[in-house]
Write a protein that binds this DNA or RNA. Structure first.
Length: 301
DNA sequence: TAGTCGTGGCA
DNA sequence: TTGCCAAGACT
């Protein structure tokens, strides 16, 4: 009788190799430094959502000086926070971070929680950010899955050209299987995996010649096939509500006090879309209307 | 699950 | 020039 053995092939991602590479090539970003607080890590993770490192750096440094603790940020007004967010984009993140800071100050003794489940309960913190904070601020073992990690795993492990549509549960299970057992090493591994996707295993033209995983990469062995999954929908921007909201908010960021509606009307020609966007900004709490009918950043009137 | 939510650099 | 892309969360 034949004996069929299921042999798990070794992972194409050797933790030692990846972690060593990270130690040599990884960037010295300030939120990775040993003196960076958990609060600093949390702020960086929120700012980095869908936003390039180069744009985050100066704003993060400014925030750490101005608001070095959750309670410090909680003491600021919403308007100050939205203004200091500048043009990082997706300004609702600033309001959610302000809310999260208040909750941390009030309910957690001004200490950023280390438990994933508790982090998940805070506004603006989802599956990625909760685990990123647990791993990078507290050295916990947790599957940290962002777009970089999804792409690296798709290629190195699955031999695909790129990651398919995201599925949080499946994606996290994939990464969980790769994580070293020990907490601090798992956290280091997670940072290294992200860095590899950011610097080498990039979306457009991956630098495979510089990749520490080159010899074991499933995508290499498969002959680097093109991405075969469903087409990803590209997000339009020009002419969308997002653009108009951005233009409206930018008027208030660039002004001291409340402004009359006429100052906002000039940024977009189509009145219907303009008013709809203004309404949505009011609903989101990014803008407030004064009793005189003027418009201002929240709290700045 | 799919749509929405900013902004700017780069190929 | 235009489209792609960048450490996601929320509904």
């Amino acid at each position: 009788m034949d004996v069929i053995m299921v042999v798990h092939s070794p992972s194409p991602i050797d933790p030692d190799v990846l972690i060593d590479w990270f130690g040599t090539v990884g960037r010295d970003l300030p939120w990775r430094g040993p003196d960076c607080t958990a609060w600093g890590v949390l702020v960086s993770e929120i700012m980095l959502q869908q936003t390039p490192v180069a744009r985050v750096l100066p704003i993060w440094l400014e925030w750490m000086t101005r608001w070095p603790t959750p309670s410090a940020l909680a003491g600021a007004t919403q308007g100050e926070v939205v203004r200091a967010w500048g043009k990082l984009g997706y300004p609702r993140r600033a309001l959610r971070l302000h809310e999260a800071a208040s909750a941390i100050a009030r309910e957690h003794g001004d200490v950023v929680p280390a438990e994933v489940d508790i982090l998940l309960a805070l506004p603006g913190i989802g599956a990625y950010t909760a685990r990123a904070v647990a791993a990078f601020a507290y050295g916990r073992r947790a599957p940290v899955v962002d777009t970089n990690v999804r792409r690296v795993v798709a290629r190195a492990v699955h031999g695909a050209g790129d990651a398919g549509p995201p599925s949080t549960k499946r994606d996290m299970a994939d990464v969980e299987a790769l994580l070293p057992d020990e907490d601090a090493r798992a956290a280091r591994f997670s940072a290294a995996l992200m860095e590899l996707g950011a610097l080498v295993c990039t979306a457009r033209s991956p630098r495979c010649a510089d990749c520490p995983l080159h010899a074991d990469c499933a995508w290499q062995h498969a002959g680097r096939p093109a991405y075969a999954g469903p087409a990803k929908q590209v997000q339009r921007f020009a002419g969308t509500d997002r653009q108009v909201r951005g233009l409206l908010l930018d008027v208030l960021r660039g002004t001291e006090g409340p402004v009359p509606k006429g100052k906002l009307d000039i940024v977009w020609h189509e009145a219907g879309q303009r008013d709809r966007c203004l309404d949505s900004l009011l609903v989101d709490g990014l803008i407030e209307q004064t009793t005189e009918g003027l418009f201002a950043l929240p709290g700045e009137h």
